[in-house]
Design a protein around this nucleic acid. Structure first.
Lengths: 215, 215, 215, 215
DNA sequence: GATGAATGAGAGTTCATTCAT
DNA sequence: TATGAATGAACTCTCATTCAT
């Protein structure tokens, strides 16, 4: 977590540091990202960075938290917009399409998602995953609850298990079009948004098929 | 791929290098692993390492391939043993339990699986994933075909989609008990093999439920 | 000097080594050239190289000697062709033009000339210079003698000094069009052969002006 | 060019680095010089070197520039002292003698001159030559202009060509007594300063002979 | 609160040469 | 005579972090 000094900082200085750090970590990941580069790009001294954050990992976790919030906010806005009452599964399809498409337009969030999922250094990955998971869980369990409440998600659904699988599937679907080798079957890597969205919808449908209750 | 020099090497020397390299990469991943450490531990000069492999990534990919083969061989031996004809899904449950348990007893294979899934450097990750996926696919599609052939996997199953999801789920289940933050719902991290196996079976059941055909 | 083994070698093997070595040293100079590369390209074992030559420098000197002979032979053939009796200085102009142009068409000889003049390692440079100088001297002093004999080069010419200056000027003129920074005044670097030849003729004329005797 | 950090450094530290670097590059040239040696001799950490200079070439070019300035300053002081008005060519003879002698007493400047002329790596040679040429040109063209102005250098002299030849001859004369193989005719290598100066004067006289105008 | 110089271990890779086979 | 495995020193350059100012 950032220090008190960070909180008291003029907004512009904070922004300069954030922009530089996001760009750098997005491009090179946690291990590859260089504090040298960040402070140079931000126009801030190297010592200052260590006045604002405990260390490199601390800064990284903070950034991941911010990015997660942005992603969550975007998803919640979209969810708000969708007609869950009218057709739960159609809305779900829309949502997953939106999810997959979102990362085509937000390289920063994509890169931080990749870093969160591909970072081998446990001192960075563990807290990042925790922060990220929190937001995923909040959004997804609300969704599942809504589905159960409206009766569209069958009462026999093991919501925990479904949640667990979604938590695995969603980052995978976000990354697969942009990261080589993740999906050798559907060839998502390099696919256009439309095909990626369609594939995502298919996989989700397979996962949820047993619980669908049609009106 | 290793050089001709490597192939012609005395078995003991090859073993010394392999052991050192596996231990090092297992502990610190690709980017973190040090060739210095490897050659020191192997009792081999640094120059020799580069007579055996093109570069660091080449060595890493080779190790990943070896580990994948070991894992595959172990799984195929187990699969051979299981009574698929008698009860396909019970055999499947056994198998997934075996899978999860396997990595408790094989830290090296576990660590290389982790490295294969968590490596951020694309020049190392892409070929590793390719090599690993090859073996996963071979084993899993044989399994699904068998299920379909015996009539236990419903004919309406989208085998590709199921395969895709399994390819995502299996490494996840292998890693989750040992890597913090992967599974925030069932709390697999640190679980004992029995609970991990049971959770894995539950998740698999959820995934395959719609396709079960009981006799 | 090459070993006896080298002399006894089948011609094709010698050619393979020579071709590979010339290409490598031409491209990367003496210090930069790699015996690894040479023996790989030649299809010869590393050990063999050291059966043929004392060491790297020995091989390099040998190559320089061969290249010098080629250059010398080309020049002597041209000299033979020129009408020295008719107009000594016109022939000289032709010759210097030919000299400069020659290196546009013979990148190997150019590169070895460059290496001979720019090599900082004295164990390689000294013997190379010696070998090269020998040929320069043979050709140039024959030329000057001829000029003196025909009475076109004034009897007051200090032939030694002129020779010395030519020995400095000629390699310079050969290299300047291809090596950056050698000639900041006439901008020979990157010039086309015609302009390079004209500039060379001008400089030579300046050098020899006092000795010209017109008929 | 050195970084701001370098400029702000305490003079003693700068001197330690400069001395070590000059000695090393002087002894082994650019490609052969070792940053390890330099930082060890300077009593400075390896990392610091890279806070002061962009990279090895940057440091080298900087040193060459400094050395060139020292040489130029020495020459200009001498030039100031000489009686050009009284006897232009006698002064010129004195000057060329001083030039040749100078490098007997300044091994560092000699070595860096050698390195500047013999460096095969174009990324180092090109900027070094540029820096060095700048100073040569400034001094020499001032000299020629003076000669022309006083009427001692005949009006028909092609000043550009003469300049060009001097630019070639001067470094050659500086190096020839100390670098084997440069001058096979007068045997300058190993000569004492007096003989080197005399030979230099002779060669210069040959070069300038046509332009002399005696009063 | 801000600075930025210093650190020094460590990285991957290349190389000419030797010598047992 | 040919081979090619082994060597290990050497290379340039990067990095997160500290701390005196």
């Amino acid at each position: 977590m950032p220090t008190g000094t960070w909180e008291r900082l003029p907004a512009e200085r904070r922004k300069a540091v954030l922009d530089a750090a996001e760009a750098e970590f997005a491009e090179r990941g946690f291990s590859g990202g260089s504090l040298n580069t960040i402070c140079r790009e931000a126009g801030v001294s190297k010592g200052s960075l260590f006045q604002y954050f405990e260390d490199k990992a601390d800064m990284y976790v903070y950034l991941a938290e911010l990015a997660s919030r942005r992603v969550r906010a975007a998803m919640e806005a979209e969810i708000e917009r969708l007609p869950w009452e009218k057709d739960f599964f159609a809305a779900l399809d829309d949502m997953i399409g939106y999810w997959v498409t979102y990362f085509y337009d937000h390289p920063l969030e994509l890169a931080l998602t990749a870093a969160a999922n591909l970072e081998p250094d446990p001192t960075a990955r563990a807290p990042v995953r925790q922060a990220v998971n929190h937001h995923y869980l909040a959004v997804l369990s609300a969704l599942l609850t809504k589905g159960a409440a409206t009766g569209r998600l069958g009462p026999d659904a093991d919501l925990d298990a479904v949640l667990s699988l979604l938590l695995l599937l969603l980052p995978h679907l976000a990354l697969a079009p942009h990261v080589e080798g993740l999906d050798p079957i559907h060839g998502l890597y390099g696919a256009n948004p439309e095909r990626a969205a369609a594939t995502a919808q298919k996989l989700l449908a397979v996962l949820l098929r047993p619980y669908r209750r049609d009106t």
